[in-house]
């Protein structure tokens, strides 16, 4: 296996002084689905913009398909496919015309063009609507066409920025299937960003959790989950002053079967435990004589949400971006609904 992306201290500071991506280093191997997981504004799209040569880094460098994104931008562009989160297909053209245009941009030989277009249309199941204007497409169809556009030149590496943003559940699963097909049957390397935990969990061979422009942790989804221990117990105190609760938490923390206790909201805590079955009664036993009382308690297996909380110290937030960004996302949503 060879590396398809090698990023070294990749950094982007905007003229206003905001550092969107802050010294990011990672490697994506050939043939894997690698996911950047993080909330809106974490630096995912900026990273993709640098790797796809849309933006020059202000620090660090990266090699994509073996070529420098700074000095060999043209060669990088030839090797990669890019599907943005914008549903960037032209509404005023037909599906076929969108693909014809894309084939023209990638200088695909005339003799090849028709075959390639047929091939990608079949893959995304749009053959029967190819000659309709994109205006008449649903959001899911637009997304599928957009992905087809990104595949027309058979790239070795495909970038998918939030591939299922704003789509309904059924369409999301279809898109997931295409992505898996690309990796399994065509051996394409895929770099995707998402802020959906389930998407990262279902698709990615490895994920990097990114927050405030930095990679917090990077591993396979299952290993990330197992670092949190086998199981979790979530509980919330019903009574007790701050000191009393702190004392109770401290007691729970000292139990042999508890590896960690973290805060999770108002009066709420999550304990990482080695044996969830017996953990609940044992927690009650441990703090039986104490003034703070637990009002609610549940036992669950860790999800990527818990991993995210563990490494970033906060839940995935919906943060308010600029007005421009808000307008953009509204437009994406509108187009996604078709």
């Amino acid at each position: 296996m060879s590396a398809m992306i090698e990023a070294e201290g990749l950094t982007k500071t905007f003229p206003g002084g905001v550092t969107a991506v802050d010294g990011v280093t990672f490697t994506v191997e050939e043939g894997e689905i690698f996911g950047f997981l993080g909330p809106n504004g974490a630096g995912k799209s900026t990273t993709i913009a640098m790797l796809t040569t849309l933006m020059k880094p202000t620090g660090g460098n990266a090699r994509v398909a073996g070529m420098s994104i700074i000095r060999q931008a043209y060669q990088v562009r030839l090797a990669i496919g890019y599907v943005s989160q914008d549903l960037a297909v032209d509404d005023n053209l037909t599906g076929y015309e969108n693909l014809r245009l894309q084939a023209g941009f990638y200088h695909i030989p005339r003799a090849e063009v028709e075959r390639r277009i047929t091939e990608v249309l079949e893959m995304v199941e749009l053959s029967d609507r190819a000659n309709d204007l994109v205006e008449t497409y649903s959001g899911g169809m637009r997304k599928r066409l957009d992905i087809a556009c990104g595949l027309i030149h058979r790239p070795r590496l495909l970038f998918l920025d939030e591939p299922t943003l704003g789509l309904d559940i059924q369409t999301r699963r279809e898109i997931w299937q295409y992505i898996q097909h690309l990796r399994d049957d065509i051996k394409m390397t895929i770099f995707l960003t998402t802020h959906y935990m389930d998407e990262a969990d279902a698709l990615c061979d490895r994920i990097a959790i990114i927050d405030y422009g930095r990679i917090k942790v990077m591993d396979t989804p299952s290993r990330l989950k197992s670092t949190l221990g086998d199981e979790l117990v979530e509980f919330r105190f019903a009574t007790g002053t701050e000191e009393e609760i702190a004392a109770a938490v401290e007691t729970i923390r000292r139990q042999g079967f508890v590896t960690d206790v973290r805060e999770a909201g108002e009066r709420g805590y999550v304990a990482v435990v080695t044996n969830g079955e017996t953990a609940i009664p044992r927690i009650f036993d441990a703090i039986a004589g104490m003034p703070a009382h637990i009002g609610a308690i549940t036992h669950k297996r860790p999800s990527l949400d818990d991993v995210f909380l563990h490494y970033t110290g906060h839940e995935m937030r919906e943060n308010g971006g600029s007005r421009d960004e808000a307008m953009r996302s509204r437009m994406i949503m509108r187009r996604a609904r078709g």
Binding site: T53, L54, R77, D86, L87, D90, R335
Partner: peptide, 14 residues
Amino acid sequence: RRLGFLNKMLTAPI
């Protein structure tokens, strides 16, 4: 630019 088509053209080798 607003619809993202510009980025699509800019990532193409043109």
